[in-house]
């Protein structure tokens, strides 16, 4: 059950953060005319917009994360009950880990985490 002190703590955190934002807003010097309405790009006029083509590796990382995080969820559960499930459980978990480990090897060999310069033809 959520304790009262936790609720109070949450409220306190929110209040503190809000206060920090509001306080700085209240204290900040106003009235200055600023001409700098551009994003920072080392002091030169920005080029292009932010709609950049992302390296495909970012997506690969995202997908790998999704897969392996779910794997992790199953292992969390297993680690709670290692003693109860005993050897059969360990066996199953080992198989599970083995399967994902092989998948991981496959993924690495596929170059999913190669960020360097690619050879021609590699996607």
């Amino acid at each position: 059950m959520v304790s009262a002190s936790f609720i109070f703590y949450v409220l306190a955190i929110i209040i503190v953060t809000m206060t920090m934002i509001i306080l700085s807003h209240a204290l900040n010097p106003r009235g200055h005319k600023r001409s700098n309405a551009y994003p920072y790009e080392s002091g030169i006029v920005p080029v292009g917009d932010t709609n950049i083509r992302w390296n495909v590796n970012y997506f690969l990382i995202a997908i790998s994360f999704v897969i392996f995080d779910i794997e992790a969820v199953f292992l969390y559960l297993w680690s709670l009950v290692v003693v109860e499930t005993s050897w059969p459980g360990l066996l199953t978990a080992s198989l599970f880990i083995l399967a994902l480990f092989i998948a991981l090897i496959y993924e690495i060999k596929q170059g999913a985490f190669n960020w360097g310069i690619r050879k021609e033809g590699e996607s």
Binding site: V56, V66, I70
Partner: peptide
């Protein structure tokens, strides 16, 4: 629920790959 989570993850992974 866990299985659904897994499914959702896999679907997103596959779907994202295809969408890209």
């Amino acid at each position: 629920y866990l299985f659904i989570l897994t499914l959702a993850a896999c679907e997103v992974a596959v779907g994202l790959a295809l969408v890209i």
